[in-house]
């Protein structure tokens, strides 16, 4: 007993350390669902985070607006002209659409049946610089499951709105879920180039870009090629836009071509995302 009294502090510290190491070992496995404790803490904290994330996002936008206040009047004039122009053309289009209702319906049907998208808001980001994970405000109650793909609507150069790859869901709580983004160092994605259909593998980089290699060393890739997911391996959904190649490098001693990709989604400004449920994708394939 006197031994315990003498080394009381050290014994407590060692016990805590051993317990933590055991917990790390137990939770490192690929778990099917969250434990009770995790779910409880998450359910309490995520609504608060949701409020704060919304506020901070709005504040940042406001600050950005204040910077441009000088050019507002000029811009307003230009926009008014533009609106009048657009309204005119819009009227003509509506006329055109009204003439062919069945065409319109068909187009909308196609748009809706491809994937049924579920909207969600980002409510928190992991602190620190190691990983790029964040949490969203939809969970089990909204029909979100582990492994679902997360995307964001992005506008490409030619004003076409497309799905841009954000990441995938790794764990789900009752009304929140953890998302691991594609720029995370441990995420590996199989891609194909839209121009030549050459395939390869990319993974995240520390500086927020993606880097990877092509399967075929003789493959024809150039700077500016657009990359889509290929769906190999079945983890990510097929045909979703990832980003553009910004650098191609070929080293003689290596048998592969290395590339660096700029992702289409701006991960530092992410706010609203969409989720593609997995069962629908399986049904499609």
């Amino acid at each position: 007993m006197s031994l315990f009294k003498k080394y009381r502090n050290r014994i407590i510290v060692t016990t805590v350390a051993i317990i933590l190491i055991i917990v790390i070992g137990l939770t490192n496995k690929d778990r099917a669902s969250l434990s009770m404790g995790e779910r409880f803490v998450g359910n309490i904290l995520t609504p608060v985070q949701k409020v704060f994330y919304g506020i901070s996002h709005r504040t940042i936008n406001l600050l950005g607006d204040l910077k441009h206040i000088g050019g507002l009047r000029e811009e307003n004039k230009k926009l008014k002209l533009k609106v009048a122009e657009l309204e005119d053309s819009n009227r003509r289009y509506e006329d055109l659409i009204g003439k062919s209702p069945h065409l319109k319906e068909e187009a909308e049907l196609l748009k809706n049946t491809l994937y049924s998208l579920k909207p969600a808001n980002v409510i928190g980001k992991e602190p620190g610089n190691w990983f790029d994970r964040f949490i969203i405000d939809k969970g089990l109650k909204d029909g979100i499951a582990k492994g679902d793909t997360v995307i964001q609507g992005i506008t490409k150069d030619d004003n076409v709105i497309e799905e841009g790859m954000v990441g995938r869901i790794i764990e789900v709580g009752d009304n929140w879920a953890k998302v691991i983004s594609i720029i995370d160092e441990n995420n590996k994605i199989s891609f194909k180039s839209i121009r030549t259909q050459d395939g390869g593998i990319i993974s995240g980089n520390i500086d927020g870009r993606l880097s990877g290699y092509l399967f075929d060393a003789k493959a024809d890739v150039i700077k500016g090629d657009k990359l889509f997911t290929s769906g190999l391996g079945g983890i990510f959904v097929k045909d979703i836009y990832i980003g553009e190649i910004v650098e191609v490098e070929k080293r003689d001693e290596q048998l592969m071509k290395n590339i660096i990709i700029e992702p289409a989604v701006d991960f530092k400004k992410i706010h609203r995302v969409f989720i593609i449920p997995n069962e629908i994708v399986e049904g499609l394939n």
């Binding site: 805590v16 790390i24 992991e126 994970r133 953890k178």
Partner: peptide
């Protein structure tokens, strides 16, 4: 050490898949 343990556990529970790494280091 208690504060370290709490901060670490909170961060691990909400964000990372593995629980206990941050808690261990902060502790």
């Amino acid at each position: 050490s208690i504060v370290g343990l709490t901060v670490g556990l909170l961060q691990d529970t909400i964000f990372s898949g593995v629980i206990g790494i941050n808690a261990f280091i902060y502790f």
